[in-house]
Design a binder for these strands. Structure first.
Length: 431
RNA sequence: GCCGGGGUGGGGUAGUGGAUAUCCUUGGGGACUGUGGAUCCCCGGACCCGGGUUCAAUUCCCGGACCCGGCCCCA
């Protein structure tokens, strides 16, 4: 293949057999979201670069697909949903709270492709605007968990929950003024060795004793009953911890999967102001499957007046990778359809009208258009996965009948065309 | 942007400084003139691209793009 024919780096072609798993990924997320009262929105794939400069700064703009358009405007292929969603939100003054919105569309980031990460991907997003309390937090996290559960991942992931406010207090206690720096170090906790962590924290102005105390605290599992006692003595922690615990117990009421307090979950350098959460595979090591949190300042950044907000994003790449590893990605294709064969092209018009009857009865019908011998057509019928083959030859044509062959059992019968669809339905259901 | 690894038909592979590039699978056709899955037969289909070394490169060397994984970053 010549170079110009190759796909661009980090982009994918999706063939039909791969679409089956993907369609489940999309449709389950959407129907679960609707069942929670979330409504679907959509927004442009191209936005002004300013939207991201405002929110994230130059270093993130460098990781986008950006260019100058013919009108001299700096534009960016959308790398994430939140700024666009918030722009939509603040543009409307007639919304009644709470607003629950979701979207599922393509995003682009100019990064090196690697495990769980591509340059073009789909991301599901769900946000709730308006009220700010533990029930709101819990409902948004419950939606995230319910979607993963609907994928058959129940019990196979862990929902980690933390609070930015809580971390701010714990980190401030070490005496550093470089909060974002310390959070960034903590975000890298799992892939960094102890020595480097201490060194990096020292660069944030945290002394060795303070740093190892902080790391010890963060890595203590929530199942250790002492953890709460150790942090609750820090001034200001108590009400925050109380809210987090209430949130966790509400989420637990909606999922069988593990929901845990995890002090190392901080979500990088982003715009979160309160609760943060991330889901990780339990059996298989994964990047975060989804992640989100409360971001109460974003609306003010765009419009001047704050609107409390919580939301999460879930990319398709990591979920797909996990489901593949667990062997639940592409489950059996449906075959509730018929394959229509003709013994001669002379009967094609009859075959078309028969196919139309099937389709009007709600049965998918594929007509063999090849003009090949019946033997070859039957082979194609078998390979197509159809449970029923419809055979049309001289006899059937003359008597206004069709032959239905159950491709699983091999039974077949010649039947009047008016009863064919109903009979095929029975045959399909019989399996 | 940086680092490590990798490439032979659609998928999986064998092999080689020189001749028609191996096998399995998939796809098409046939044996089977109105019936699929089994068997047999036939057919189609590949050495990532460019440069170098050489009489000769799919093979050796260099570079590039691409793929896999990691760093940075993770919205």
């Amino acid at each position: 293949m010549t170079q110009s024919m190759e796909r661009l780096r980090g982009f994918r072609d999706i063939y039909p057999e791969e679409m089956r798993g993907r369609e489940k990924l999309f449709s389950s997320a959407e129907s679960v979201s609707r069942s929670y009262g979330y409504e679907k929105i959509d927004f442009p794939s191209l936005e002004s670069m300013e939207l991201y400069r405002l929110k994230s700064g130059e270093e993130l703009v460098g990781q986008t697909f950006s260019f100058v358009d013919r009108g001299g405007r700096e534009v960016t292929l959308v790398p994430e949903a939140t700024p666009s969603v918030v722009r939509m939100l603040v543009s409307r003054k007639d919304l009644s709270w709470p607003v629950r919105w979701y979207s599922f569309q393509k995003f682009w980031r100019y990064e090196e492709p690697q495990s769980g990460r591509l340059r073009e991907f789909y991301q599901f997003n769900a946000d709730l605007f308006g009220p700010d309390n533990h029930a709101v937090d819990a409902e948004n996290i419950s939606l995230a968990a319910s979607i993963l559960d609907s994928y058959g991942l129940s019990g196979r992931y862990e929902m980690r929950i933390n609070s930015r406010e809580l971390m701010n207090l714990l980190i401030a206690k070490t005496g550093t003024s470089n909060l974002p720096g310390a959070l960034a170090v903590i975000d890298r906790l799992e892939k960094t060795d102890q020595e480097t962590l201490l060194k990096d924290l020292a660069e944030c102005g945290i002394g060795k004793n303070e740093a190892s105390g902080l790391l010890d605290l963060i890595t203590t599992p929530a199942s250790d009953g002492n953890l709460e006692n150790r942090i609750i003595s820090v001034p200001g922690v108590e009400p925050i911890l109380k809210r987090v615990k209430k949130t966790i117990s509400l989420v637990r009421a909606t999922t069988q999967s593990d929901v845990v307090l995890n002090l190392s979950t901080v979500r990088g350098l982003s715009y979160y102001t309160g609760i943060v959460f991330e889901a990780f595979g339990k059996e298989e090591k994964t990047r975060s499957i989804l992640g989100g949190g409360r971001y109460n300042e974003m609306a003010a950044l765009l419009s001047g007046s704050p609107i409390p907000a919580i939301g999460f994003g879930m990319g398709d790449v990591v979920v797909e990778g996990l489901m593949r590893k667990l062997g639940i990605w592409n489950e059996a294709r449906t075959s509730d359809r018929v394959y229509i064969c003709t013994s001669s092209e002379d009967y094609m018009e009859y075959a078309f009208s028969v196919s139309s009857l099937f389709r009007k009865s709600g049965i998918d019908a594929e007509v063999d258009l090849s003009g090949r011998g019946l033997s070859a057509q039957m082979k194609a019928a078998s390979r197509s996965g159809s449970r029923v083959a419809v055979i049309i030859g001289e006899r059937e044509y003359g008597s206004r009948k069709v032959t239905l062959r159950n491709m699983v059992t091999g039974e077949q019968q010649e039947i009047d065309v008016s009863n064919a669809a109903a009979q095929a339905k029975r045959s399909i259901l019989k399996r």
